[in-house]
Amino acid sequence: MVKNEARDRGEVPGHSVFGAPCWVSLTARDVEAAENFYRAVFGWEWRPNSHDDRFRVALADGVPVAGIAAVASMWQMAVTWTPYFAVASADDVVARSRERGGTTAVGPIAFPPGRAAVLADRDGAVFGVWEGRLVASVEQWREAAPTFIRLHTRDAFDAAIFYGEVLDWASPSSCCEVQYEADEVVLRNRGTVVARIHSGAVEAAPDPAIRPHWQVHFAVTDLDACIRAATAHGGEVLLREEGAQEALLGDPDGARFTVTSKREP
């Protein structure tokens, strides 16, 4: 249970964000190299974390939008982008995940002004949870660096059950709406699509070749310029179909992310 006095001090997000994606963080080996690459690609500026020099926060127009944690070697973790979901209690989420076959890689551990844990679902896809005051409001975060996430997995329906139970999507305190559309499970927060769970056509059998993972998508105003900057600074284009308005990129350390052309209103 989250204590009322903690909420009164602003240390935890309100019910309107519980269960929703609230942050993305890059697990890296070299902070400076990662800073230089993503500054070139997205124009982000960086500020150090006052509690630990292995961590950095990316700023877009002064708004915190992402983090870098140079702990891949120390924690024996892959170099990767990880989405974080806002929760009322990291301990409760970790317990629910374990009960349903998930595993815990890190935490919960204290990261002032909150607590975090890194988990894997029962198919191995890695995600994080955050308990505490948000670095930036969800609205600011989405406006400054439009982001959504997609889980590529073997069975979207089974994954939706796992995340729905672990992140409490069906509870009155959740801000999320879950719908099944075509071949995806779609998660909305205040009408905005914030996550998708995809496993292919509904009538198709689960594909054992898929390595389940969360893919982070960043919307950009100039897709081609973003791709040029990435390749010029040591990254690579891993997938871009002809005429497609998105591309899968890899940074110099091997972390994958997707850039999507921002659709103007």
Rank of each mutant, 00 (worst) to 15 (best):
I109S: 09
L239F: 13
R211N: 13
P108K: 09
V65W: 04
T192E: 15
V178C: 05
A86W: 01
E99W: 03
G234A: 07
E264S: 14
T104H: 04
V63E: 12
V166Y: 06
A144W: 01
G101T: 14
K3N: 08
R122V: 01
G243Y: 09
C22E: 12
E177A: 11
T80M: 13
L223S: 02
E242K: 13
A78C: 03
E35N: 14
V17I: 07
A72F: 11
C176T: 15
R150I: 11
G107F: 06
N189V: 14
A116C: 07
R150L: 07
G43Y: 12
G191D: 11
T258S: 06
A160S: 15
E131W: 02
G124E: 08
V220Q: 00
A182Q: 11
I161W: 06
W44R: 08
D253H: 10
T231Q: 13
Y180Q: 13
S171F: 02
W75F: 15
I68A: 01
H217W: 14
P172E: 14
A230P: 11
E45W: 02
S173A: 13
S174E: 00
V65H: 02
Q179N: 13
A28N: 12
G10C: 02
R7T: 10
F37C: 09
R240M: 09
D8N: 12
F55C: 09
S97Y: 00
R29L: 10
V71Y: 10
S73K: 15
Q245T: 10
L238S: 03
A205C: 03
R47I: 15
F127D: 05
D155L: 07
V216P: 01
P206H: 11
L26S: 07
G14K: 09
R190V: 04
C176P: 01
H233C: 09
S173K: 03
F148R: 15
V71M: 10
G19R: 06
H15R: 15
A230D: 12
D183R: 09
S25A: 13
P265R: 12
T80I: 13
P113M: 10
W75S: 11
D158Y: 03
Y180W: 04
Y163K: 01
I68G: 00
V41G: 05
